[in-house]
């Protein structure tokens, strides 16, 4: 887990900062590929690590991420929210949904934003631990509250991740998954074009 925490060295951009950070992002330090999360989001390469930045505007949104593993794949999942006073009670939840995952408990099933499809299991993170892990993201100097990473073996085949906010309040979040860094295709460069999403 600490390896993953240390790995939270992602996103950035612009000018000399951009150049330096691009160098850092391509360094041996493990890092997540940053991207802006869409409500309906396809994870094109789920085998690499991602930091997906989303925002609840109305609070009613349910983000749905889709991906497919060619073979069984073990990876950690984590929900991060900015360590700010206005996010102190902001605790988005997520569920990893796939065939072959365990049956959720009754409480977890009731917490889901929609019914679980037949034949599907789920890992449900209720993000309700009173004491939250604090994570320092050192590249962009951000501080986050974490749901604490959960490692999960996901069976081969399609899977979905649902993200929702039971309190229906607005707020920013970053959903992190995976370990293996890969910035191929210039993906990290996009960070520099959207500074306000990833930093201040």
């Amino acid at each position: 887990m600490s390896g993953l925490i240390r790995s939270l060295r992602f996103r950035v951009r612009r000018g000399w900062v951009g150049g330096t950070l691009a160098l850092l992002l391509s360094s041996p330090a493990v890092a997540h590929m940053p991207a802006v999360l869409k409500t309906e989001h396809v994870i094109e390469r789920p085998e690499i690590s991602w930091a997906l930045y989303g925002r609840f505007v109305s609070g009613d949104e349910v983000y749905r991420l889709k991906g497919t593993y060619e073979k069984p794949f073990a990876l950690p999942f984590e929900m991060l929210v900015p360590h700010r006073d206005d996010h102190r009670r902001f605790r988005p939840r997520f569920a990893v949904v796939a065939a072959g995952l365990p049956e959720p408990t009754t409480a977890e099933r009731e917490a889901l934003p929609k019914p679980l499809p037949a034949g599907q299991g789920a890992l449900v993170e209720l993000n309700d631990d009173p004491d939250r892990l604090v994570v320092f993201e050192s590249v962009l100097r951000r501080m986050y509250w974490s749901s604490t990473p959960i490692a999960l073996p996901v069976p081969a085949g399609p899977f979905e991740i649902w993200i929702w906010n039971p309190d229906r309040t607005s707020g920013d979040f970053t959903f992190a998954l995976g370990v293996e860094e890969d910035f191929g295709g210039g993906g990290a460069a996009g960070v520099f074009e959207d500074w306000g999403t990833y930093a201040y």
Binding site: R9, V17, T20, L21, L24, A29, F136, S138, V139, L140
Partner: peptide
Amino acid sequence: APDLSVGNHLGVGL
């Protein structure tokens, strides 16, 4: 003043 950290928490600053 730009800065660079390469130790326990990699990062840059400006």
